[in-house]
Design a protein around this nucleic acid. Structure first.
Lengths: 142, 142
DNA sequence: TATTGTTATACTCTATAACTATA
DNA sequence: TATAGTTATAGAGTATAACAATA
């Protein structure tokens, strides 16, 4: 059970997380890579090839949205697509070397602002964030 | 100074915050109120009337974007606008009773999913999030 | 018939550039 | 001239509905 005041904590946490995420998005570098692109490339980088449906489910977007993202990534040369040998309906998406390179560079750029924010915090404050990291991940993946 | 491994922590924290925020946005109720609307109404609710420019700065959006948001809110009856008496160029935006009511209901709906997530956490995990709250706020407002 | 993915279409949000009104 | 805000226009991202291909 949660304490009576936890409802207010839930609201405040939600707002703080949303606003921080907005700041991160706004403060990203002058690159031309969208969040959707980076999310897909990141998953392919970590988990290897995946079907369009798997990618859509992972990002909680609809299949048409993922089709559009994959098409753009393919036209830019960052992924390749091929029908599955087992099941011709499925489309297997794989990251290219250019995709790897783009993701590395983009992640680096986008972390700059956030890293600067961390540098302005005290040791205790950074420790508090570090302790919250696994909890945030748990919620994000649930 | 930050420890050598903090660069990686920065990346992981950033991704976890962004993905959690995406989940919050996706899991919101069937309401028809955008994040932009709620952010403006929330600020007017807490801080009282404000100019269009102040609202744009607070949300880190451009003046044209804020104009559009304010127009939509006014047409829906959730805010009123009036030129400043001191400076005819400035537009003072005020929340209406309907705006108050809408914001309360919307906040309640959007917090449901997040509150359920909190209920699934251990006491230690909730404490970790609570400790991180002021730090997140500090970053979001910086 | 059910599933996987695509195409067609439209809506929301945001941005840059050009403009109006006021100081 | 400088500032506050609006209008015009365009682009990115996403959604629902209808469709095609495969199982």
């Amino acid at each position: 059970m949660m304490a009576p005041t936890d409802d207010e904590t839930a609201l405040e946490l939600r707002l703080a997380i949303q606003k921080t995420a907005r700041r991160i998005r706004n403060e990203r570098g002058g690159d031309h890579v969208s969040d959707g692109w980076l999310s897909v490339l990141g998953q392919l980088d970590r988990g290897g090839p995946a079907t369009a449906g798997q990618l859509a489910e992972y990002d909680h977007v609809t299949p048409p949205s993922m089709t559009r993202t994959i098409t753009a990534l393919r036209e830019a040369g960052y992924v390749t697509t091929a029908p599955s040998e087992d099941d011709g309906r499925r489309v297997i998406v794989s990251i290219t070397d250019a995709g790897h390179a783009l993701m590395d560079e983009t992640r680096r750029l986008r972390t700059v602002w956030f890293r600067e924010q961390l540098a302005d915090l005290s040791g205790d404050e950074r420790a508090a964030l570090q302790a919250a990291l696994p909890v945030l991940r748990k919620m994000a993946d649930s």
